[in-house]
Write a protein that binds this DNA or RNA. Structure first.
Length: 823
RNA sequence: GCGGAGAUGCCGGAGUGGUCAAACGGGACAGGCUUAGGACCUGUUGGCUUAGUGCCUACCUAGGUUCGAAUCCUAGUCUCCGCACCA
């Protein structure tokens, strides 16, 4: 077999694609568009890792497939360049984040090109570029204008490693999403928020419209947004009506106390003089614990000194401040029914608060004295005045109606989703375009002054670096012209990635965020590919932004992406997550160097289905590499003939299945189909077979496909040639059957030879007896059969007069099941 | 606690009512080629049995539906993942 210089071939075609601007696209009205996007990377100094390579290859195959199918394919790439890791890495390396980031991007591009990815590089974007983040600021101002931006002081999540606050979505299990070893601290700070909760309802309800999103992602989003139906009930405390939210109004007669969140902004209004000290001590203690510890803490609380009046019973119940009530869910205060809620039960036991049973299960009788846990099941109402005897499910409705009639409450819907905390006390992010004026208060930077660029001269390492840029901080108030100060918080980097897909439609527009017509030509994204870990972060934010931009008239779509695809996690060969400390990291570039980009692409798609987790396996890589060598070798020696019905039949069957499998992103199976076809391609075959096999191979292994396409006498490029269509009339099941019959004859001969030899006999020739009308088929395959079975054969029809058949084996012959006699 | 995914032969991994002892790859084994090894080619790879056959046992466990189940239903076991004091 000849040595193949994969590297030379790959560089040759990468250059040609680039020179031909093969993947650059424009809006073409008469062509059907297809927008395919992989989640853009955060360009770290480490360069491309295997997960990136997997992600991009999945997208690239689809993109190439769609191009060949005649779609106008937008397939862009950009860099999510702002963010803390770059800032930290830059500080560590002693260089400016901008230089650090630009180097990383250059490195990324080089590596992505080496993979042979079909991007329209002319549309590349870099979010750290002021021409990009200018539009982040522009959107911010639009939101500000619409009242979707606000500032509030509250308990926030602080990551001591990042040195900044985090959004709710970025706290995973009480730890920072970037530092899984770092406990989140609770701080009370004034921060900027986006009012994403204004969109909670639509974000929740429209999940149903996301027909081609993975179910688990939709489930996670539903869970995260957390819609629940319930009743808001007004409790009077100190002469004032306080609303509380409950999903169990049926238990209202069982309320024996109330709990207000320790983080509630109005908590102190309820605290009496006598209880003040105790409450403050409690709060102080809570402030010193991390979020994680808070979650693991026992339910605790202190009496506030105030009493609430139950609107139905008129009973007075004590109000406690508690550590287990969430300040910004519902109204931050709950009615506590210890008999029928486990948390309330534990709290009541701890503080000796009475327990009142109001729902009796059908099977037995509850005794408040003897209960060891709350009864949360269904049953019949007792101790509930006129509602006694009602089934509790009906009571939910009845009691709510009763309350509504008297103006004491109403049906409502609550969401778990919190507003998006976007303030970050760090440098490498989009500056918030606001100015603080002593006279005028908070004043937005006028649109025409955008972008507010990041100042270059800042000091890193002491709190928020922006505060050290005095020239920058000191500004004039756009309203009164007086001295003022710039906002030094920057925006969460998730802001940048929330609308980047739109900028790709018109990346160099300096006049507006994007041309509406261009954007509306390309959107929505037809196929969006990325990791599942973004289900409750990026994928909620991008939906929110899309809806907002629609509402200000820029877009006509409701959702950013039609189909969402999550690639599986690629683990190291040892089954663990690839990590430097475990030493199981495989670098894509090393593999490209040692084997080839095509081999890597093939391997990445062969480990398992692209959406399931898999392990790196050198053997699969080598197996694929060998396959490509065989293909190359084959095309260099194949003899082209006019027609090859047998293989063409197989070809068209394969076209049918491969097309479907690629469409469904089941690339691993598509590759298997191609391998099966190749296995059956004979030394002499038709151009139709040769061309179409290569076409189908080309999305997976585009370089070698181009090379061999040229070799068999075609003009470049196979990359934009027409995807084959299955011709049903060429699929001949009879030929397939014959092929199977030949296969089984071969293995039958081998089996019988072995049996004979095992019994001490010998066999040097096999006589084969077939039905008369099958004879020709077998004769045509004679050489093939001899070679494969490793024995000389002679074929007779059962009715041949002069056949040699000493044991009368022709008697056993059935259709496509020849008789065999060995000598 | 809530929600999601899954459990298939030595391994990876297809298959989701019959055409399934179950694709494809890897490994192992046998044969060919070769001075030898590698590479390459051919075949075998649940058990028993047989001149290429037939039978039995199999797709986490236990039941069930069906003429028929790896595939559907019920219960259970285990694994992975996400969220989690959301009232």
């Amino acid at each position: 077999m000849v040595e193949i210089n994969f590297k030379k071939i790959e560089e040759k075609w990468q250059k040609k694609w680039e020179e031909a601007k093969l993947f650059e696209v424009k809006e073409l009205k008469d062509k059907k568009k297809f927008y395919i996007l992989e989640m853009f990377p955060y360009p770290s100094g480490e360069g491309l890792h295997m997960g990136h390579a997997l992600n991009y290859t999945i997208g690239d195959i689809y993109s190439r497939f769609k191009i060949m199918q005649g779609f106008n394919v937008l397939h862009p790439m950009g860099y999510d360049a702002l963010g803390l890791p770059a800032e930290n890495a830059a500080i560590e390396a002693g260089i400016h984040p901008e230089d650090y980031t630009n180097n990383s991007i250059k490195n990324f591009i080089k590596q992505q090109k080496a993979l042979g990815l079909s991007y329209d590089w002319s549309r590349m974007i870099n979010t750290a570029n002021p021409e990009y983040y200018k539009w982040d600021q522009w959107i911010f101002l639009k939101m500000f204008e619409k009242g979707l931006v606000y500032k509030k002081t509250s308990a926030v999540n602080w990551c001591p490693k990042c040195n900044t606050v985090l959004a709710n979505e970025q706290v995973h299990n009480g730890k920072c999403w970037r530092h899984s070893d770092t406990d989140i601290e609770i701080k009370h700070l004034e921060q900027w928020y986006f009012k994403i909760t204004d969109y909670a309802e639509e974000l929740y309800d429209m999940i149903n419209e996301l027909k081609e999103w993975p179910n688990r992602t939709k489930a996670m989003q539903r869970n995260w947004i957390g819609k629940s139906y319930g009743t808001e009930i007004l409790f009077e405390i100190n002469g004032e009506k306080w609303p509380i939210f409950t999903t169990r109004p049926d238990t209202i007669y069982g309320v024996t106390f109330m709990v207000i969140s320790a983080q509630h902004p109005r908590l102190m209004e309820l605290v009496t003089e006598e209880q003040k000290q105790e409450v403050e001590e409690f709060l102080k203690r809570l402030r010193s614990v991390s979020e994680k510890e808070l979650e693991e803490m026992e339910k605790e609380g202190v009496f506030t000194g105030s009493y609430a009046i139950n609107p139905l019973t008129k009973e007075k119940v004590p109000v406690y401040a508690g550590n287990f009530v969430i300040a910004d869910y519902g109204s931050g205060m709950v009615m506590a029914v210890p008999a029928h809620d486990q948390r309330d039960f534990e709290f009541a036991k701890k503080y000796n608060i009475p327990i009142k049973v109001v729902i009796q299960p059908d099977a037995y009788e509850l005794n408040p004295e003897k209960m060891s846990r709350a009864y949360t099941g269904s049953g019949t109402l007792i101790n509930s005045e006129e509602f006694n005897g009602l089934n509790n499910h009906d009571a939910i409705d009845e009691i709510t109606k009763y309350l509504e009639k008297r103006g004491l409450g109403k049906r409502t819907v609550q969401y778990k989703l919190r507003d998006w905390l976007i303030s970050r006390q760090r440098y490498w992010g989009t500056p918030i375009p606001l100015i603080h004026c002593e006279k005028c208060g908070v004043v937005p930077v006028p649109e025409e002054e955008l972008p507010v660029e990041l100042p270059k001269n800042v000091e890193f390492g002491k709190g928020n670096p922006l505060e050290t840029a005095e020239d920058w901080v000191n500004a004039t108030c756009p309203k009164c012209g007086g001295p003022a100060k710039r906002e030094t918080d920057t925006m969460d980097t998730f802001v940048n990635s929330s609308w980047y897909y739109l900028r790709f439609c018109d990346p160099h527009n300096s006049k507006e965020i994007f041309d509406k017509e261009k954007a509306n030509y390309w959107v929505p994204i037809d196929l969006y590919i990325g990791g599942a870990e973004h289900a409750c972060m990026h994928l909620i934010y991008i939906r929110f932004y899309t809806k907002f931009l629609r509402d200000i008239g820029l877009l006509k779509i409701d959702e950013p992406a039609i189909k969402l695809f999550h690639q599986g996690m690629l683990h190291g060969a040892d089954g663990n997550k690839m990590s430097k400390s475990l030493g199981n990291v495989i670098n894509p570039l090393d593999i490209i160097e040692k084997y080839s980009a095509d081999s890597l692409r093939l391997a990445l798609m062969s480990f398992a289905s692209p959406d399931s987790d898999s392990q790196w396996d050198e053997k699969i890589l080598i197996g694929g590499h060998k396959f490509l060598e065989k293909v190359y070798d084959y095309y260099n020696n194949v003899e082209i003939i006019e027609e090859d019905k047998q293989t063409e039949s197989k070809l068209h069957k394969t076209i049918k299945s491969v097309t479907k499998l690629i469409e469904e992103i089941r690339y691993n199976l598509a590759i298997i189909e191609l391998r099966k076809l190749f296995e059956k391609m004979p030394k002499k075959t038709s151009k139709e077979v040769l061309e179409n096999f290569l076409k189908m191979l080309s999305p997976f292994c585009p370089h070698i496909a181009e090379e061999l396409w040229e070799k068999i006498g075609n003009e470049p490029f196979i990359s934009n040639s027409k995807w084959p269509e299955a011709d049903e009339s060429k699929i001949d099941e009879k030929l397939e059957q014959q092929e199977k019959a030949v296969d089984s004859l071969v293995s039958d001969i081998i089996r019988v030879v072995k049996l004979v030899k095992d019994k001490g006999g010998s066999a040097s020739k096999a006589y084969i007896y077939v039905l008369p009308d099958e004879k020709e088929v077998y004769l045509n395959e004679k050489e093939n059969i001899q070679k494969r079975a490793g024995i000389e054969i002679e074929i007779f029809a059962v009715n041949d007069k002069d056949k040699y058949d000493p044991e009368n084996k022709s008697k056993k012959v059935k259709p496509w099941k020849p008789g065999i006699y060995l000598e």
